[in-house]
Design a protein around this nucleic acid. Structure first.
Length: 311
DNA sequence: AAACCGGGGAT
DNA sequence: ATCCCAGGTTT
């Protein structure tokens, strides 16, 4: 099928899309703490890492507590592994917590404790990929960046390309469309980044889009085409959960976060909500140790006891 | 390109 | 019971 290239995103459509979505955002934006005037670039970076695969409602309280405890990169850089993992609590993917501390250490060592504002330096930080680097540039520094998250991908897939949902993995054509839509200038580009993400989160939702409340419904290509179905549905595979190593690892981490002392294997098995296969628990423990999330002392397991330095 | 990595709330 | 969520890293 024909995929729009930058030149096929008509200038008038681009202008109307950006102008109206940004205007809508000014009235509809959520008051999230990492958007408050008193936020810091480090606070924005922390929010973006926490928001990697964890919904806003669960990040908000964790973010407040985290920044109250470790307000700066220098503060987090000196935190102990166990403290960091307990504070991360159930945000999920706890390797992100370790990377965030590594990131804090890198900011201290490479950038004098100040979050850098250029894309290459941001990308070089642990746990910071293409999306997060662009988001920090736009949201922490108000600079122009092509910010493409799952929300923006969906908004553009629908409004511009006419698809129900974007492809399972981003395509080159998709990146071209995203880059073509971003307006020139720091202020306009960063406003578009925030506004387009918010539209995808609040209005252009994956399951049940609220087209009646959409500021660009009249120029939406998906709507104009009569809401065709998801062309990639056959290749979309939702991750299994029950019985997976991810679930097993999560249960082990929950037990060890709650424990004051080391937990031997018998006690660990007793604390697991369900009873995974013996071999799976063994495999997951080995993986967690490999990841630096767990340590073993005399046959008992516990969160790492070393400080921030040992790694 | 695909696999791996959590967890909870909505439908 | 299934879907969805402000991705990054590794293979």
């Amino acid at each position: 099928m024909r995929v729009p290239t930058p030149t096929t995103v008509a200038a008038e459509v681009r202008a109307a899309l950006v102008e109206r979505v940004v205007a809508w955002f000014q009235a509809a934006r959520r008051d999230l703490p990492w958007r408050a005037p008193e936020r810091t670039p480090w606070g924005v970076l922390v929010s973006e890492v926490m928001l990697q695969q964890t919904p806003v409602v669960r990040v908000e309280p964790a973010w407040r507590a985290w920044l109250e405890r470790w307000p700066t990169p220098a503060a987090l850089a000196d935190a102990s592994t166990a403290d960091v993992l307990r504070a991360w609590d159930r945000l999920g993917y706890p390797r992100r917590a370790l990377r965030l501390r590594e990131c804090a250490q890198a900011v201290v060592e490479r950038h004098g404790g100040q979050v850098p504002d250029d894309e290459a330096a941001l990308r070089a930080l642990p746990g910071v990929g293409e999306y997060t680097a662009a988001a920090v540039r736009a949201f922490a520094f108000g600079r122009r960046a092509v910010v493409v998250d799952t929300n923006v991908r969906r908004v553009l897939a629908r409004a511009v390309t006419g698809l129900a949902l974007p492809a399972p993995t981003p395509t080159a054509a998709e990146r071209a469309v995203a880059a073509a839509v971003v307006p020139a200038g720091d202020a306009a580009a960063s406003a578009w980044a925030a506004a387009s993400m918010e539209l995808g989160a609040l209005v252009c939702a994956a399951r049940s889009p609220r087209c009646a409340a959409c500021p660009v419904a009249d120029l939406c290509a998906w709507r104009a085409a009569g809401y065709p179905g998801d062309t990639h549905a056959h290749r979309r595979r939702t991750q299994a959960w029950h019985g997976t190593d991810r679930q097993c690892r999560g249960r082990i981490m929950a037990v060890l976060r709650a424990a004051d002392d080391a937990v031997d294997r018998t006690a660990l098995d007793a604390h697991m909500a369900a009873t995974p296969a013996d071999a799976q628990v063994t495999r997951c423990l080995a993986g967690l140790i490999e990841d630096g999330l767990v340590e073993q002392t005399r046959g008992a397991y516990h969160l790492p006891r070393e400080g921030a330095d040992a790694r």
